[in-house]
Computed example of a mutant assay.
Amino acid sequence: MKQPLKGGLVMLSEMKENLPPSEKKIAAFILDHPHEAIHCTAAQLGELSGTSGAAVMRLCKSLDLKGLQELKLRISGDLQKEVASSYRNIQPGEEMDAIVDKVTNNNMQAIRETTELVDFAGLEKAGDAVVKARRLHFFGVGASGIIAQDAQQKFLRMNIATSAFTDVHNAVMDIANIKETDVLIGISFSGETRETALVMEEAKRRGAVTISITRYGSNTVASFADIPLYISASREIPAPFRSGATSSRMGQLHMIDLLFTKVVTSHFEEASGYFEQIQDIMTRLK
């Protein structure tokens, strides 16, 4: 399995505002001059951005990359893609055709960029952990709680004992009984939801496998994850109508679908049997 190298520009864009000053300057230069940057050494990038070669290497480490070569390969992959539409803000008084066009574009963009950030090895590891789990627990607050409930509905089809909680008090009662053979998946777009971080921390302390689904970059929820999975939706934040977590929801649902499909395809015959039994019962209920 060979992972296509793309997503370098997305990573830089997602992380830029949270980077130290010198690394932020390098990220800004690369985003403004990607074609030039892919031909530079670390020393040259440092000089062009007014920083240093050491700062360039620290940036690569902040992006969780193996080094400058991987970053340049990812950016090269980005530059070879067809030009995609960017996120588009919805303004007051928009016409209906503009609303349909912009919302559709933004949702598709969230899925595309999330796909570019997928860590194939991490997703494979997460799928294996779910298959081996005695119980599977999902937790999220607010809009992320809806994603947790959607995930529960999916994984129940695989005959996996699955729970989903959106209230921290109920989640604490659930986590109090969690075992080392269990898996907890904490969902938080920002990665800074206090309740989700608390639940993740406690599950990890009790030895359960912890998986996070958050926006790309360093954050509290991901810090408690054995397997962090990332989505992209950063451009949604400044929009004047970030109502109901629109684009972030699409990224989260996409990641859940990827994980579920990985589990199904790994045990396709078993999954087919479960689905047939469910379909048979549903037919008799009609």
Rank of each mutant, 00 (worst) to 15 (best):
L9Y: 01
L12R: 07
S13G: 15
E17M: 11
L19M: 10
A28S: 13
F29H: 10
L31S: 06
D32N: 12
H33G: 01
A37H: 05
T41M: 01
A42G: 10
A42W: 01
A43D: 12
Q44T: 13
Q44D: 11
L48H: 08
T51N: 06
S52H: 04
A55V: 00
L59Y: 01
K61A: 13
S62P: 02
L65Y: 02
E70G: 06
K72I: 00
R74V: 07
R74M: 14
I75R: 06
S76R: 14
G77I: 07
G77Y: 03
D78Y: 10
Q80P: 05
Q80A: 15
Q80W: 04
E82K: 15
A84Y: 13
S86V: 14
N89S: 12
I90N: 11
P92C: 11
E94F: 06
D97S: 14
V100I: 15
K102G: 09
Q109K: 15
E113C: 12
E116Q: 12
F120E: 11
L123N: 02
E124K: 10
K125Q: 09
A129T: 03
A129L: 02
A129E: 02
A129M: 02
V131M: 03
K132V: 03
R134G: 14
R134T: 11
F138R: 03
V141A: 13
V141Q: 08
G145A: 07
Q153R: 10
K154V: 01
K154E: 01
N159Y: 00
F165G: 01
T166S: 12
T166F: 01
V168T: 13
V172M: 13
A176S: 15
I178L: 08
K179M: 14
E180G: 14
T181K: 14
D182E: 11
I185A: 05
S190I: 08
T196N: 07
L198N: 13
V199H: 03
M200Q: 09
K204Q: 15
R206L: 14
Y216H: 10
Y216Q: 08
T220K: 15
A222R: 10
A225V: 10
P228H: 08
L229P: 07
I231C: 03
S232F: 00
A233P: 09
S234Q: 11
E236H: 08
P238M: 08
F241L: 12
S243R: 04
G244V: 03
A245H: 05
Q252I: 05
H254P: 00
H254C: 10
D257I: 00
L259P: 02
V263H: 01
T265G: 00
H267S: 09
A271N: 07
S272R: 14
F275G: 09
M282R: 15
M282H: 13
